[in-house]
Design a protein around this nucleic acid. Sequence first.
DNA 1: CCTATAATAT
DNA 2: TATATTATAG
Length: 584
Amino acid sequence: MDSYSNGFSSPRAEAFPAGLRVLVVDDDPTWLKILEKMLKKCSYEVTTCCLAREALDLLRERKDGFDIVISDVNMPDMDGFKLLEHVGLEMDLPVIMMSVDGETSRVMKGVQHGACDYLLKPIRMKELKNIWQHVFRKKIHEVRDIEGLESGIEEFQMMRNGISDQSDDGFSFCGGDLNSGRKRKDFDNKHDDKNFGDPSAGKRTRVVWTVDLHQKFVKAVNYMGFDKVGPKKILELMNVPWLTRENVASHLQKYRLYLSRLQKDNDLKASHGGIKQSTDATSRDQAGNLGFKNSINIKHNDVANTNFGIPKNTVIQNSNPKSHDGVVSSPDLGPKGPLVSDAHEIQKATSSSGVGLHYSFGTPDLDTKYTTFSSALPPQFSWNREHKPQIDPNNVFNHLSLPDLDQVQVNQKTFLPSYPTPFNKERDKLTHIKAMPPRATECISLNIRQQMPGENTFGLNPVQSECSTTAFNPSESITRTAWSSKDQVLDHISVSDLDSFNGNLILGKNSALTSLNENFPPCLLPEDCSPTYFEMQNSDFSDSNNPGLLLEPSMYLYDSLKFDYEYPCDPIEYPVMDQGLFIA
DNA sequence: CCTATAATAT
DNA sequence: TATATTATAG
């Protein structure tokens, strides 16, 4: 692992792609062998398994044990897409799907479910050689995120060179604003003026906590330590001009509540398992500590390369030195049963269930402020800047990261994202990981409401659409919504923009909003995914090993994407998918 | 700063 | 209508 981590942490290292930890899943032993061989030739560290279940278990056991997963689509025990979903939700690892079938709809489905790439068998070296780019790309994005809080941008820039930035991704996917890139945000003016300054307006505008905003929030929290945080500090760190302390306080309240609920669930689960910890502690307290403490204190730069400053996993280190091993895994929860269970069912049940936090992406409402994009937007665009001109350059858009907890965490060691658990506290105490709830739990669902760029293409307006999907439930039958994708994106799981886009169109309830375009963000896309997909088509790029090269290809890809997507297929078709996306 | 509660939004 | 999110009061 070390080697691995090193490699990634410092892209420049020659060893770079070497040591990439790949998990290959395919029910056909022959393919498994072949792939293993090929991957080893690429100097990757390969682990194989022929069952999806097995793969999931492996991944759960060794949370930070893999950098990327390559899975066949057709498998007896579990649909490859389902596996994809689980992986995306639970470990946030890039997943490459493969099959003999290159039917567009299948590929699309893979992408929608979060696959960062879709390879057609027979797979050639060419294609495998570059899989590291998915890992790298993801890393970069994460960096970016974090960066926001930290002052250092250097790293970011470094990476940046190599890779296209999100905006590219985003755009291409969105299918929308290709050329201009960003649509403008005209409307800011309106809103801005309105409420802010004048008290006269009796009530303040309502802040919508978009994913982006929430991420910032979380970062801030993690950065300073959960227990130490206060609205004021968070606000400062977030550096979002128009946000008020009250807004943050309110959100913090909600967040804590949410965490406590989460905890509670976990406890329950744990108890079920028989192992009950002392958790009973009041929910409040726990909540307070949850998760963050541990993770946070470390924000050093030393890690700089890798992490970008985020503290995250510290906890793990402390508690479990071997985090790698998967200490984290939680047996009780029984990843098995429930996971496999059909997402469908769960979804249904769950979708509305209450556990998740919902974030929205866009905004339809004029009065409301949406934070979301502020980041992505160039300063000029920032909406409310009036109040505070400061804009974070940092803000970049990232794709969404998981909601709270994990979010962006980066493993210092590995650099792969790991989930931070909210439950650190307990973890520490207990040390047993068992007690811990499975990550899945952590993955709560998010409903994201996003607004797509109203694409002009269609002439439609962007509308919000929502769809939710369920992730899975790790342990009990609890169901959770994974997140809704409507638009997008959650990390990988998400749907392709295209879909969402279309979805929006269709759904368009608020069509009135037509002008919205502001825009959004193209960003949300799962960066990983998009480009890749195309790559297949243009196989040319596949050769480069050099990270530096990465960029170029991407660009191409993007272009091609744009092209393709420019004429989106029938919008109509998608909506449906949209909804069902995750569901399978 | 935190909690509770009202006001809104979905 | 029931719930969830956010604003406000205490």
